[in-house]
């Protein structure tokens, strides 16, 4: 993940203000990070409702724990870890969830010739085992280095790399018919 030093510095100042009693500083932190946490939640959980619930719960837990935040990691890394732990503990819904592109009143980039491929990708990622999906999402979508992924998920760097490789191999199998290249016949 490319960390913008100015942004990180801004986060540190907001955390310091919050600890000193400025509630609006937390609102500013939420505004800065809600999109990223929502998108991470969407990629991990696969539906808008679950992504929203995960994002809301992650920020709630961050609010409760922020005064104890030691600053040994960036705020972004810290709240990402909270979101990952929530996703690990989340139970799959029993009923069918409405895909975002079918949810009324919400805009999304689901139209167009790539829509079917994007749905296929999303489904394939969603079918991965929890840990593989998380490492894959953090690596590909969040652009994190394996050292950061290891820190966030609580696994070793070697395990993070091996898990990433397993996830990619699994994905390749899910996205392509046997013996074909990914995307062919999709």
């Amino acid at each position: 993940m490319q960390v913008d030093p100015d942004r990180q510095d801004g986060d540190e100042r907001l955390v310091a203000r919050f600890v000193q009693g400025d509630e609006s500083a937390f609102d500013d932190l939420v505004a800065r990070h809600r999109i990223g946490i929502y998108r991470l939640g969407f990629r991990l959980m696969g539906s808008h409702e679950e992504a929203d619930d995960l994002a809301q719960e992650a920020f709630l837990r961050a609010y409760k724990a922020l005064r104890r935040f030691r600053g040994d990691a960036s705020f972004r890394t810290w709240i990402t870890r909270i979101a990952i732990n929530l996703a690990l503990g989340a139970r799959r819904p029993r009923g069918a969830t409405v895909p975002l592109e079918d949810a009324p009143g919400l805009q999304c980039a689901a139209a167009g010739p790539d829509a079917a491929l994007k749905r296929q990708v999303r489904r394939a990622v969603g079918d991965l085992p929890n840990r593989q999906r998380q490492v894959l999402v953090l690596k590909v979508y969040e652009g994190m280095k394996f050292t950061e992924i290891a820190q966030i998920t609580g696994i070793s760097i070697g395990t993070a790399k091996a898990t990433f490789f397993q996830a990619v191999r699994n994905l390749r199998g899910r996205l392509a018919p046997a013996g074909g290249a990914p995307g062919e016949g999709a």
């Binding site: 969407f42 990629r43 808008h48 975002l100 919400l106 999304c108 980039a109 990708v121 994905l171 995307g183």
Partner: peptide, 10 residues
């Protein structure tokens, strides 16, 4: 292909 799977904006 994976990188085409962006998260929609609600």
């Amino acid at each position: 292909i994976l990188e085409t799977g962006e998260a929609p904006d609600p």
